[in-house]
Amino acid sequence: MANIVIAQTTVNDEGKAYDIGRAAVEARLTAGVHIDARMTTFSWEKGAVQHERGYRLSFQTTTGKVAALKAWVHEQHPHDVPQWIVLPSVEASEEYLAWAVKETTAG
């Protein structure tokens, strides 16, 4: 049985975030995507703390689509090592699950 998951990545460019989000929905790899307003991130890179602005994309998809979505996002992503985190759902309504399954099924 399918279940809902939230898969997340980040990009530094607003236009690229919109392009990836829209295209993932059009490809039916995700039922929907939320793009969070610009955020600030700090991380270790190249031996020092780095500061960037970015956008988080949260894909609402099913367990059956995660692998395909991951491969697709990694192809589209501007970073060599994109952030990729999948958060399982503890609970989702039957109606929301049915919607996500319907919208991620080619048709």
Rank of each mutant, 00 (worst) to 15 (best):
M1R: 06
M1S: 11
A2Y: 10
A2W: 12
N3D: 11
V5K: 12
V5T: 09
I6Y: 09
I6F: 14
I6V: 14
I6R: 05
A7T: 12
Q8V: 05
Q8N: 04
T10N: 05
T10Q: 02
V11Q: 02
N12K: 02
N12I: 01
D13P: 08
D13I: 00
E14I: 00
E14Y: 00
E14H: 04
G15E: 10
G15M: 06
K16A: 00
K16M: 05
Y18G: 04
Y18R: 10
Y18F: 07
D19T: 12
I20W: 01
G21P: 13
G21D: 09
G21C: 09
A23T: 14
A23W: 01
A23Y: 03
A24Y: 05
A24C: 15
V25D: 01
A27W: 03
A27V: 05
L29S: 06
L29D: 06
T30Q: 03
T30M: 09
T30W: 11
A31R: 04
A31V: 03
H34T: 05
I35N: 07
I35Q: 08
D36S: 10
A37F: 10
A37H: 11
A37S: 14
A37W: 07
A37T: 14
M39G: 08
T40C: 10
T41F: 11
W44Y: 10
E45G: 02
G47N: 11
A48G: 04
A48I: 12
A48S: 15
V49W: 09
V49G: 01
Q50M: 09
E52H: 07
E52P: 03
E52Q: 00
R53F: 02
R53W: 00
R53H: 09
G54K: 02
R56S: 10
L57D: 08
L57Y: 13
L57Q: 13
F59R: 13
Q60V: 12
Q60T: 07
Q60R: 13
T61S: 15
T62P: 12
T63C: 06
T63M: 04
T63G: 14
G64C: 06
G64V: 02
G64I: 00
K65T: 07
K65W: 08
V66P: 11
V66Q: 09
V66I: 13
V66Y: 11
A67W: 04
A67F: 05
A67R: 13
L69E: 11
L69I: 10
K70Y: 05
K70D: 00
W72L: 06
W72K: 10
W72R: 10
V73T: 08
H74K: 14
H74I: 03
H74Q: 14
E75S: 11
Q76F: 00
P78H: 01
H79P: 04
H79Y: 05
V81A: 10
P82Q: 04
P82K: 05
W84C: 00
W84T: 03
V86F: 11
V86C: 04
V86I: 14
S89M: 15
S89A: 15
V90W: 01
V90F: 07
V90M: 04
E91W: 13
E95V: 07
E95A: 15
E95D: 12
L97F: 06
L97T: 01
L97G: 03
A98L: 07
A100P: 07
A100S: 13
A100M: 09
V101R: 02
K102P: 04
E103P: 07
T104A: 01
T104Y: 09
T104Q: 08
A106M: 01
